[in-house]
Design a protein around this nucleic acid. Structure first.
Ligand SMILES: [Zn+2]
Ligand SMILES: [Zn+2]
Ligand SMILES: [Zn+2]
Ligand SMILES: [Zn+2]
Lengths: 132, 132
DNA sequence: AATTGGACGTAATGTCATAACGTTAGCTTG
DNA sequence: CAAGCTAACGTTATGACATTACGTCCAATT
């Protein structure tokens, strides 16, 4: 019910654009790439992104105002993910750390805080850019 | 050297505004509050914020595009902090979890990633808003 | 006095995101 | 089938967040 719904045309276009890029894109960059497919306005992209975010096929990177296709689109609705973002080349590694999630959940329950969304993002330089 | 420098007038005004608010403010909200003190343009606020961020007196909340005074301004340059942000009342709790930091550092070193800045933010509802 | 560097003031612009409106397409139900 | 409903769509305008560019001021250094 939450995912697995057939994507609409715009949603499929936006997801395709992100998958093809293999790296985070801003909504306006996505729009530019889809002009030839008939998209004209930011809202068309944002509306598609909203649905893709809901279903977990796309993630939003808060620290760089960009969106990226989920690396694990088949294990749907995985718990909150963490991201390592290379500020030099744009590469993003999505990972998930159970200990981190557990600690944040612990803090929340100890403080009577009811979490809805969690953001964990590391910016820096990836191995490739560091010249390994 | 990094902190402890005397603040300029604009920096002091911006920091004062954030401290007085006791909750996150957007740059433009800060600007509005400082019009009577002579500030006119966003850049005056952003420049002050840049310095305050550098010295660790202020933190940026990436997920809500806002800024907040550090809760522990005297333990300067504490490691990367985590934040619990109430989406109902705007309250922010700054905390620091050594285990979380350690796990993220471990991931980084295992993957040859050199971290520069880390964002950990939980959005949800605080105890007060949940009616404890 | 001349030089340098940091902070400042101002205007313009760039980037990211949503409000508000009406329309279209597919489904449900009597 | 026709009426009614809902989700997605298209378009325009606007709002919110952030930076570029350029010139000035002032205090510290030489
Ligand atoms: Zn994912
Ligand atoms: Zn890289
Ligand atoms: Zn702090
Ligand atoms: Zn609250």
């Amino acid at each position: 019910m939450t995912s697995h719904q057939k994507l609409t045309r715009n949603q499929a276009l936006v997801l395709g654009s992100l998958e093809k890029a293999g790296q985070p894109l801003s909504a306006y960059t996505i729009l530019d790439q889809l002009r030839d497919d008939g998209l004209r306005a930011p809202l068309q992209v944002y509306r598609a992104l909203d649905k893709l975010l809901e279903s977990g096929l796309v993630h939003r990177l808060e620290s760089i105002n960009a969106f990226v296709a989920c690396s694990h689109p088949h294990s749907h609705s995985h718990g909150s993910a963490a991201f390592a973002i290379c500020e030099r080349c744009g590469r993003v590694d999505e990972f998930s750390d159970a200990v981190v999630q557990k600690r944040l959940a612990s803090w929340s329950s100890e403080h009577g805080f009811k979490p809805s969304r969690t953001t964990v993002e590391i910016r820096g330089e990836c191995a490739a850019c560091l010249g390994n």
